[in-house]
Design a protein around this nucleic acid. Structure first.
Length: 707
DNA sequence: CATAGCCGCCTTTTT
DNA sequence: GGCGGCTATG
């Protein structure tokens, strides 16, 4: 089958594909055909007689897993190899060995929003102030501990300073709450799976024998618990093949440990190392620039980036007035590409550092009626109506899921208010029962009057009724719950506001129907656990014929003819939060490197002079990375002819007292002017109150005549 | 008990 | 510029 494709592989790719036994490290640069290598490798394993179910490939995202499955099937191989993310794999393992892992297999998976609620409760239960122990930071700290497989007991022994001792208590309580709710967060999935494998040699051996060949993609972004899981899974055979690129490691903040890939040869001393250094994707000048940039990283293994293509158009580096002008220009350029060069819209992408930047772009795309698609993972499942409906489903599977229960007990409003809930919770706390069990014993709660009791009874009856039906198809169950819970009515009553919500719900029901059709053994538990991990309904669809807008992080693994990277400014890229940490600064540089190397043909990098961040307009400076690229930034082409055009070589002079108007700040009075030729600075006291020093060549001030 | 409106914290990136 | 949580009001 894929024999015919053998000739398409380069010598190094062949080494990575056909050398089968033992540990292997594939150091694959951007655009080196890594995906092809992995799929061919799986195909060649199957070809040489390995049964598909003995192969396990681990990808970074669900999307990547899907694609890989499709590609392997397309090569003519029988399906059946296990291809998934670490998290999905762990869910599967934990459910299979639930008893040994000491979990119930009906567990809920808590996302960030659920986690926040639990950590707040935990801090409160510890009688600490959330102002001194901010939930977000506590979660980060706990996440870091879990990623390093430090459980409460271990941390308790280590904790010796004031903060750590408090953190131990919060950590312990947080885990307690999760256990009471029969829930796990993302980090728990990994940690519990790792502990299961390490503490139960038989389980470890069983799985290691089942997955005789393990492949881990994006190995540079694995964290410590994933590393330990990997070690355990290959302990019986060491048939491990990892692929990755240290220069594309961009998930440090999430616990990714670049040392995993850097130390691979130490961990597996007989490892074979294959380097894929040829790049088949990008024009030579793009690679040259990317290489120049990444060379500024100190903590790095030297690596070559060998172009196989010729020069493309010059890389553009543009400076704009503000994010609106930047976005408009992007749209204008896309129009030109489309009309003059006949580029398809799905061959174009715009990357940015933070999600909030998508707004300005979106506005410009809408204004120009240009089809676009925002690629953002969690969006869909974050919508209120979706979360509500899913909460109903979760309760059926896992009645202990208090987060879900509290979410829906009065959604839509059914007369069960705050006081009632508090009294029930009080009863639940003084008896060793869960919140849901307290609901069932509502009769015994003396502090409640007749009316609320009846309401609660009605609610419990409804849930029990739903539960009886929860063994059938997920889609029809979801649909009937939507109708019978009153959610549908409340959305319909909301008028036009509820319209898009209704559409979203039908999208959810569609996805459930899809699941019913395609799952190996469909069940509600399985569906819920899957969608908790697969939060990607909005995932990028290249066939949609729209321009893709996404963060630089989401851009990993993709490629486009034309790439725009916007907001390349100090404070944004590198993000200001990385300033005081050299490692993080290097990661920011890698982020830009990843973005640049997505481009096949043309690359346009831009920054602005002013940017509105959280409602505040700030003066911004080009990113230091732009200077490292050593490409002279071009002042933006004039987009408008309305206001007084200023030629760069004849900048105006100002004198104190002169009244001027600024595009965004409005009118003001010049306080000072320093003549430095092209770099002249004017200080203006604006009527709104603020005083600003502006570069004359950027500021585009209009002089008020007569002053 | 429900709702509207206000305050404060927030978001850098995601499985 | 937005959301969650809190408060005042009907």
């Amino acid at each position: 089958m894929h024999r015919s494709l053998y000739d398409q592989l380069t010598p190094s790719q062949r080494k990575a594909v056909f050398h089968i036994d033992g540990p292997m490290l594939v150091l694959a640069g951007p655009g080196s055909g890594k995906t092809r290598v992995i799929t061919h490798r799986i195909a060649s394993l199957i070809d040489s007689g390995i049964r598909p179910q003995n192969i396990c490939a681990i990808t970074f995202t669900n999307k990547a897993a899907d694609e890989m499955r499709q590609r392997v099937t397309a090569l003519g191989c029988t399906a059946g190899s296990h291809i998934s993310t670490f998290h999905s794999l762990c869910v599967r393992i934990l459910r299979q060995y639930a008893a040994k892992a000491q979990v119930k297999n009906s567990f809920s998976i808590y996302d960030t929003a659920d986690q926040r609620k639990c950590i707040k409760q935990a801090v409160k239960d510890c009688e600490l102030e959330t102002s001194n122990f901010p939930p977000a930071r506590m979660l980060n700290a706990i996440s870091a501990l879990k990623n390093n497989l430090i459980d409460v007991e271990t941390f308790n022994v280590q904790a010796d300073d004031f903060f750590s001792k408090r953190l131990v208590r919060i950590y312990q309580r947080y885990q307690g709450i999760l256990t009471e709710h029969n829930a796990m967060d993302f980090d728990d999935l990994l940690m519990k799976a790792a502990f299961l494998l390490e503490r139960h040699p038989k389980v470890c051996e069983e799985l290691s024998r089942r997955f005789r060949f393990l492949l881990v993609d994006e190995y540079q972004d694995t964290n410590h618990s994933q590393y330990r899981i990997t070690r355990a899974l290959v302990s019986a055979h060491n048939n491990i093949c990892v692929t990755g690129d240290p220069d594309q490691s961009i998930y440090r903040w999430r616990g990714a440990d670049i040392r995993n890939i850097l130390a691979f040869e130490k961990d597996w001393p007989d490892a074979k190392v294959v380097r894929l250094e040829e790049n088949f994707r990008s024009a030579a000048n793009i690679l040259e620039a990317a290489d120049k940039l990444i060379s500024f990283n100190q903590n790095r293994r030297q690596k070559r980036l060998i172009p196989t293509r010729g020069l493309g158009p010059d890389i553009m580096v543009n400076v704009f007035e503000d994010e609106a002008a930047e976005a408009e220009s992007v749209v204008e350029q896309i129009k030109r590409l489309r009309e003059a060069e006949d580029v398809q819209l799905n061959e174009i992408a715009v990357f940015y550092r933070i999600n909030a930047q998508s707004r300005a772009l979106e506005e410009a795309f809408i204004k120009a009626n240009m089809p676009y698609q925002i690629v953002r993972g969690v969006e869909f499942y974050n919508r209120k109506e979706i979360r509500d409906l899913i909460a109903y489903l979760k309760i059926l599977v896992n009645p202990d899921d208090e987060i879900a229960l509290l979410r829906i007990i009065n959604t839509p409003a059914r007369g069960i208010g705050k006081t009632t809930i508090e009294r029930i919770a009080g009863y639940g706390a003084s008896h060793p029962i869960s919140f849901f069990d307290a609901l069932k014993r509502i009769e015994n709660i003396e502090s409640l009057s007749k009316n609320p009791k009846a309401k609660v009874e009605q609610f419990v009856r409804m849930i029990e009724k739903f539960r009886k039906r929860s063994t059938g198809r997920v889609a029809s169950l979801t649909e009937s719950i939507f109708a019978e819970s009153g959610l549908e009515k409340s959305l319909k009553d909301a008028g036009f506001e509820g319209e898009s919500a209704l559409e979203n719900v039908s999208e959810l029901i569609n996805s459930a129907a899809q699941y019913d059709k395609s799952a190996e053994s469909p069940s509600l538990v399985d569906y819920l656990q899957q969608i908790s991990l697969f939060s990607d309904v909005d995932v990028y669809d290249p066939s949609s014929g729209r321009v893709a807008l996404m963060t630089l992080h989401s851009a990993k693994g993709l490629e486009f003819e034309n790439v725009f990277i916007v907001g390349t400014e100090d404070g944004l890229l590198p993000h200001e939060r990385s300033y005081d940490d050299e490692d993080e600064m290097e990661e920011e540089r890698r982020l830009l490197f990843v973005g640049m190397t997505r481009a096949k043909n043309a690359l346009c990098i831009s920054c602005t002079r002013y940017r509105t961040i959280r409602g505040q307009q700030l003066r911004t400076m080009p990113s230091q990375f732009i200077y490292e690229l050593a490409i002279e930034p071009q002042p933006a082409e004039e987009q408008s002819t309305d206001d007084s055009k200023i030629a760069d070589n004849e900048l105006p002079h100002y004198r104190a007292g002169q009244v001027v108007i600024h595009k965004s700040f409005g009118p003001g009075v010049v306080k000072n002017f320093v003549d430095m030729g092209q770099n002249s600075v004017v200080t203006v006291r604006f009527n709104k109150g603020q005083e600003k020093s502006l570069m004359v060549k950027f500021a585009r001030l209009t002089k008020m005549p007569g002053h």
